[in-house]
Amino acid sequence: MTRARALPAALLAAICLVLTACGSPAGGEEPLVIRYGNIYPASTTFGKAVDRMAELVEERSDGAVRMDVFHSGALGSEQVHIEGVREGSLEMAHTGTAGIALFVPETALFEQWYAFDDLDQLARAFDDATPLLERMYADKGFTLLGTFYNGPRTLISTSPIRSLDDVQGKQLRVPGSDLYVRMANGLGARGVSMPLGDAFTGLQTGTIDALEGSPDDLRSGGYGSVAPYLTLDEHVYHPLSIVYGRDAWEALAPEQRELVQAAVDEVSAEQRAALEQANVDALTELEEDGVEIIEITDREAWADRVAPTSAGFAQRFGPDGQRIVEILDAAGRP
């Protein structure tokens, strides 16, 4: 009873509504239900990967384990998702710094702007950091099962951004993360933290001038219809940690843990392979829909603009954070 009262009210209500609508399976023993939260649309590489994960888990368990997936932030923000995993109203989610960094703040170091030039550098850094991250996550009540990858995050805007001068003063939507607000401000924009689900309306009403995300995310969200300029500054390649609540994970039978882990391993590899092509396809589709694709030739100058912000941010952390900084450097960080 104490645990139930502590759950985020909006998340608990949303889950109850959906599960009541779904009903119970007819006959036989009740399956183990794993609730999975995804803030991105089902059409993104993350949404497709999680849906595939759910298929594998149910097929390979002959229906004894079922995964209920909640796409497009149906249960709330990324912060609500990670709190739900920790408190037990969700079993699983994938999360970037706007979520997991609430409990493991050092993970935000992976999302410093212009830290990586490509996915290979990011993947190398995350692989090297995984033993450290597994211990840090466990200390805060999470089990790290793997990662999806996202990026490069770019800018989509209601007026063209062709240079650093055009960024100055822009109201730029960023995730609910102190790092992103600091980085946006360091670039010269004004970072506006708001849930992703509010960004479309924000662009329509002029509350924000721009938001950032990978081409695939931006296409899936339909933002090109209200923000017809996309600037390829490629400021972030980042991991999305796939986490399970530690207590819930330890309560699973060994064969159930093996089943889930195998599905995570398989679909995360597929998602990384699909991401690059998805972004290429998204850029083509956005351009066909009338979005102007703008390439910059001075990305190094953009990186230099936020370098003091990055250095100051990194100094906030203790030994674990400094170890992550070393891993980033070794992976090829500028």
Rank of each mutant, 00 (worst) to 15 (best):
L218R: 00
A42Y: 07
E258N: 11
R135G: 15
L259F: 10
Q261M: 06
I294T: 00
S310Q: 10
E78K: 06
F317N: 07
R182D: 15
V18Q: 07
I100G: 03
G245Y: 10
N185Q: 06
G224I: 08
G99S: 05
R182I: 09
N150S: 02
D165W: 04
L230G: 10
Y137H: 12
A303S: 15
F126S: 11
L12E: 03
E287G: 03
G176V: 08
G63S: 02
T2I: 12
L144K: 13
R3Y: 01
L230E: 09
S214A: 09
G318L: 01
D51R: 14
Q112Y: 13
G63W: 03
F313Y: 14
A269T: 09
R60V: 01
L144W: 08
E288R: 13
D247Y: 12
E91C: 04
Q315L: 15
V85I: 05
G332I: 15
R333Y: 05
E292D: 07
T201Y: 00
Y149S: 15
G321S: 04
E287F: 03
A101P: 13
R86C: 00
L155V: 15
G321K: 09
E326V: 02
G73S: 10
W249P: 03
E83Y: 01
D217H: 05
E270N: 06
G76N: 08
R323T: 05
L75D: 07
I208L: 11
V50Q: 00
R162D: 01
E83W: 05
T20E: 13
A282F: 05
D62W: 05
P239K: 13
E295L: 14
M1D: 00
A14Q: 04
G191M: 07
L179I: 14
L286R: 14
L179D: 04
G224D: 06
R190G: 08
F313K: 04
V267M: 11
N185S: 14
G318M: 08
A307W: 01
T309L: 02
E285M: 10
M183V: 02
A330D: 15
N279I: 01
D247W: 08
H238D: 14
G99K: 02
I34L: 14
D298T: 04
S43H: 09
R173D: 12
I293H: 00
G202W: 12
L133D: 03
